[in-house]
Amino acid sequence: MNYQTPLGRARGLGSAGQGSHEWWRQRVTSVALIPLTFWFACSIALLPGLEYEAVLNWIAAPWNSVLLLFFIILTTYHTLLGLQVVIEDYIHTPWVKILSLVGIRLVFYFLGLAAVYATLRIVFAD
Protein backbone atom coordinates (compact mmCIF):
# COMPACT_ATOMS: atom_id res chain seq x y z
CA MET A 1 0.00 0.00 0.00
CA ASN A 2 1.29 3.45 -0.82
CA TYR A 3 0.63 6.04 1.84
CA GLN A 4 2.10 8.93 -0.15
CA THR A 5 -0.10 11.47 -1.85
CA PRO A 6 0.41 11.74 -5.63
CA LEU A 7 1.97 15.18 -5.14
CA GLY A 8 4.29 13.82 -2.44
CA ARG A 9 5.35 11.00 -4.74
CA ALA A 10 5.99 13.39 -7.62
CA ARG A 11 8.16 15.61 -5.45
CA GLY A 12 9.97 12.55 -4.13
CA LEU A 13 11.27 14.30 -1.06
CA GLY A 14 10.11 11.96 1.70
CA SER A 15 8.64 12.95 5.03
CA ALA A 16 11.31 15.51 5.88
CA GLY A 17 10.43 17.53 2.77
CA GLN A 18 14.07 17.81 1.85
CA GLY A 19 17.32 15.87 1.80
CA SER A 20 17.25 14.09 -1.55
CA HIS A 21 19.82 16.56 -2.88
CA GLU A 22 22.14 15.51 -0.06
CA TRP A 23 21.78 11.87 -1.07
CA TRP A 24 22.62 12.84 -4.65
CA ARG A 25 25.59 15.02 -3.69
CA GLN A 26 26.95 12.16 -1.58
CA ARG A 27 27.00 10.07 -4.77
CA VAL A 28 28.47 12.77 -6.98
CA THR A 29 31.29 13.48 -4.52
CA SER A 30 32.02 9.76 -4.11
CA VAL A 31 32.35 9.23 -7.87
CA ALA A 32 34.73 12.18 -8.13
CA LEU A 33 36.69 10.94 -5.12
CA ILE A 34 37.40 7.49 -6.65
CA PRO A 35 40.33 8.62 -8.86
CA LEU A 36 41.38 11.26 -6.32
CA THR A 37 41.65 8.58 -3.62
CA PHE A 38 44.23 6.65 -5.67
CA TRP A 39 46.22 9.82 -6.21
CA PHE A 40 46.05 10.84 -2.54
CA ALA A 41 46.89 7.35 -1.22
CA CYS A 42 49.95 7.07 -3.51
CA SER A 43 51.04 10.57 -2.46
CA ILE A 44 50.77 10.15 1.30
CA ALA A 45 52.36 6.69 1.12
CA LEU A 46 55.59 8.44 0.06
CA LEU A 47 55.55 10.93 2.98
CA PRO A 48 57.60 9.00 5.58
CA GLY A 49 61.26 9.85 5.19
CA LEU A 50 60.60 12.81 2.89
CA GLU A 51 62.57 16.04 3.39
CA TYR A 52 60.72 19.31 4.04
CA GLU A 53 61.77 20.70 0.64
CA ALA A 54 60.39 17.65 -1.14
CA VAL A 55 57.00 17.99 0.62
CA LEU A 56 56.88 21.70 -0.30
CA ASN A 57 57.76 21.00 -3.92
CA TRP A 58 55.20 18.26 -4.14
CA ILE A 59 52.35 20.49 -2.91
CA ALA A 60 53.52 23.42 -5.06
CA ALA A 61 53.65 21.39 -8.29
CA PRO A 62 50.75 22.82 -10.36
CA TRP A 63 48.73 19.66 -10.93
CA ASN A 64 49.24 18.50 -7.37
CA SER A 65 48.02 21.84 -6.01
CA VAL A 66 44.83 21.72 -8.06
CA LEU A 67 44.18 18.05 -7.25
CA LEU A 68 44.86 18.71 -3.55
CA LEU A 69 42.45 21.67 -3.44
CA PHE A 70 39.79 19.66 -5.28
CA PHE A 71 40.38 16.72 -2.93
CA ILE A 72 40.07 18.97 0.14
CA ILE A 73 36.79 20.53 -1.00
CA LEU A 74 35.18 17.25 -2.10
CA THR A 75 36.38 15.31 0.93
CA THR A 76 35.20 17.97 3.37
CA TYR A 77 31.74 17.94 1.82
CA HIS A 78 31.60 14.15 1.49
CA THR A 79 32.69 13.75 5.13
CA LEU A 80 30.10 16.25 6.30
CA LEU A 81 27.30 14.41 4.50
CA GLY A 82 28.51 11.04 5.81
CA LEU A 83 28.83 12.14 9.43
CA GLN A 84 25.42 13.80 9.17
CA VAL A 85 23.83 10.45 8.25
CA VAL A 86 25.62 8.74 11.16
CA ILE A 87 24.40 11.43 13.59
CA GLU A 88 20.84 11.30 12.24
CA ASP A 89 20.81 7.52 12.59
CA TYR A 90 22.19 7.19 16.11
CA ILE A 91 21.43 10.39 17.99
CA HIS A 92 17.77 10.76 18.87
CA THR A 93 17.77 13.47 21.53
CA PRO A 94 16.72 16.54 19.53
CA TRP A 95 19.02 19.15 21.10
CA VAL A 96 22.06 16.82 21.04
CA LYS A 97 21.32 15.99 17.41
CA ILE A 98 21.06 19.64 16.36
CA LEU A 99 24.18 20.60 18.31
CA SER A 100 26.10 17.70 16.69
CA LEU A 101 24.91 18.59 13.19
CA VAL A 102 25.86 22.24 13.63
CA GLY A 103 29.08 21.21 15.37
CA ILE A 104 30.40 18.96 12.59
CA ARG A 105 29.59 21.69 10.06
CA LEU A 106 31.58 24.31 11.95
CA VAL A 107 34.48 21.92 12.63
CA PHE A 108 34.78 20.65 9.04
CA TYR A 109 34.23 24.05 7.39
CA PHE A 110 37.03 25.31 9.61
CA LEU A 111 39.30 22.35 8.81
CA GLY A 112 38.55 22.66 5.09
CA LEU A 113 39.32 26.37 5.21
CA ALA A 114 42.56 25.73 7.09
CA ALA A 115 43.61 23.06 4.57
CA VAL A 116 42.80 25.28 1.56
CA TYR A 117 44.55 28.26 3.17
CA ALA A 118 47.64 26.20 3.99
CA THR A 119 47.81 24.84 0.44
CA LEU A 120 47.45 28.29 -1.15
CA ARG A 121 50.05 29.72 1.22
CA ILE A 122 52.53 27.00 0.22
CA VAL A 123 51.74 27.49 -3.47
CA PHE A 124 52.10 31.27 -3.44
CA ALA A 125 55.05 31.48 -1.07
CA ASP A 126 58.08 32.67 -3.00
Partner: peptide
Protein backbone atom coordinates in the same frame (compact mmCIF):
# COMPACT_ATOMS: atom_id res chain seq x y z
CA UNK B 1 31.92 1.08 6.06
CA UNK B 2 30.49 3.48 8.63
CA UNK B 3 33.30 2.91 11.11
CA UNK B 4 35.98 3.47 8.46
CA UNK B 5 34.10 6.62 7.41
CA UNK B 6 34.29 7.99 10.94
CA UNK B 7 37.97 6.95 11.26
CA UNK B 8 38.78 8.66 7.95
CA UNK B 9 36.99 11.81 9.15
CA UNK B 10 39.12 11.84 12.30
CA UNK B 11 42.20 11.42 10.09
CA UNK B 12 41.22 14.50 8.10
CA UNK B 13 41.77 16.57 11.25
CA UNK B 14 45.37 15.33 11.26
CA UNK B 15 45.79 16.07 7.54
CA UNK B 16 44.63 19.65 8.06
CA UNK B 17 47.14 19.96 10.92
CA UNK B 18 49.79 18.45 8.64
CA UNK B 19 49.16 21.00 5.86
CA UNK B 20 49.21 23.87 8.35
CA UNK B 21 52.52 22.56 9.71
CA UNK B 22 54.01 22.48 6.20
CA UNK B 23 52.76 26.04 5.60
Amino acid sequence: HRITGVILSAGLVLWAVFLMAVA
